[in-house]
C-alpha cells in the first residue's frame, strides 16, 4: 500500500495487509499524534488496510510557543 506522510511530504510503500495501529507502530508514530485518512474518511486503529489501499498520515502536532 502507498502511505503519504504529511507534513513531511514523503511517500512510503508498505507490503501486506495490516491494521492501522500496526502500521503506525511500524512507522514509529504514536497513536493520537496523527490522523490516518483514506479518501474522505478517517480510520481508527483497528481498521484493516489492504495492499491496494492508499492512505495519508497527517501529523496533528504543531509547535512553537507564541
Amino acid at each position: 500500500m502507498r502511505v503519504h506522510l504529511h507534513p513531511q511530504r514523503r511517500t512510503v510503500e508498505v507490503q501486506g495487509r495490516r491494521r492501522v495501529g500496526q502500521l503506525l507502530t511500524e512507522l514509529g508514530i504514536l497513536p493520537g499524534t496523527a490522523m490516518v485518512i483514506r479518501g474522505e474518511f478517517l480510520l481508527t486503529e483497528g481498521e484493516v488496510l489492504e495492499d491496494v489501499d492508499e492512505v495519508e498520515i497527517r501529523a496533528v502536532i504543531s509547535g512553537g510557543t507564541g
Binding site: H6, P7, L30, P31, G32, R58, S62, G63, G64, T65
Partner: peptide
C-alpha cells in the same frame, strides 16, 4: 495549513509535547 512554521523545528515546546504524548499513550 498543515506545514509547520520553520522555527518550530527544535522548539522546546515540541519536546515537551512529545514527552507528554508518550505519557498519554
Amino acid at each position: 495549513i498543515v506545514e509547520e512554521c520553520p522555527n518550530a523545528v527544535g522548539a522546546t515546546q515540541l519536546l515537551y509535547k512529545d514527552v507528554l504524548n508518550r505519557l498519554e499513550h
